[in-house]
Computed example of a mutant assay.
Amino acid sequence: MISTTDSHYYSLDIDTDFKKVPLTTIGLQVFPRSGKQYGFLYKLTKGQDFNTFPRLQMMRFKHDPKIAQRIFDEFHGGKDLFPDDILMNHWKACNRDKLVLSNRTVLANQVNNPGSSVDDLTHELENLGYEIRDYIPTFTKDELKEYYAAIKKGFWNEFCSRIYIPGDNGSILNALKSLPSDKRYKWAFEEGIPYTIDYNQGVVLKKFASCLK
Rank of each mutant, 00 (worst) to 15 (best):
G129N: 09
S3F: 07
P54E: 07
F208G: 03
P32I: 01
D80P: 00
S210Y: 02
G167C: 05
G202Q: 07
K98R: 15
D80Q: 13
A188T: 02
T140Q: 10
K62N: 14
L212P: 02
N169F: 05
V100W: 06
I197M: 09
E146S: 14
D49T: 05
Y10P: 04
G167H: 04
S117C: 05
F139I: 01
Y148P: 01
N51L: 15
K20F: 11
K62L: 10
Q48W: 06
Y195F: 12
S178F: 08
E74R: 13
T16P: 01
D168M: 04
L44K: 06
D84W: 09
V203E: 15
E158H: 13
H8V: 09
R184Q: 12
E191T: 02
F61L: 10
A150I: 00
L41M: 12
D142V: 12
F53I: 05
S116E: 12
G170C: 02
N113K: 08
F139G: 05
T105C: 13
E131R: 13
G170N: 03
K153M: 11
T122G: 04
I86P: 01
L12E: 02
F31E: 13
Y130G: 06
K92A: 12
D142W: 02
K141W: 03
C211G: 04
D97P: 00
K43N: 07
K186H: 09
D15M: 06
L107W: 06
Y10Q: 04
F82H: 08
G47M: 09
Q69V: 00
A209C: 10
T24D: 07
N89F: 07
F189M: 01
L12K: 03
S7K: 02
R70K: 15
G47N: 10
M58N: 14
T140A: 08
F53Q: 08
C94A: 14
F159Y: 15
D84M: 09
T4K: 08
Q110F: 02
Y9D: 00
T5E: 14
E124P: 00
I14T: 11
K46E: 12
L128Y: 13
L176G: 06
N200Q: 13
N127A: 14
L87Y: 13
P83R: 09
D80V: 03
M59G: 03
L44I: 03
L99N: 10
N112S: 15
P83V: 01
G39L: 02
K79D: 11
I136N: 14
N51W: 14
R96H: 12
P180Y: 03
Q201P: 00
F31Q: 13
I193A: 03
G78L: 01
W187M: 03
V21P: 01
T4N: 06
H90T: 12
F18W: 07
F40L: 15
L125A: 05
K98M: 11
S178A: 15
T196C: 10
D84R: 15
D120I: 06
K43Q: 11
R96I: 11
L23S: 05
S11V: 15
E131Q: 14
L12W: 08
P114N: 09
F75A: 11
F18T: 02
R70T: 14
A149H: 12
G202N: 08
E190K: 13
K66A: 13
F139N: 05
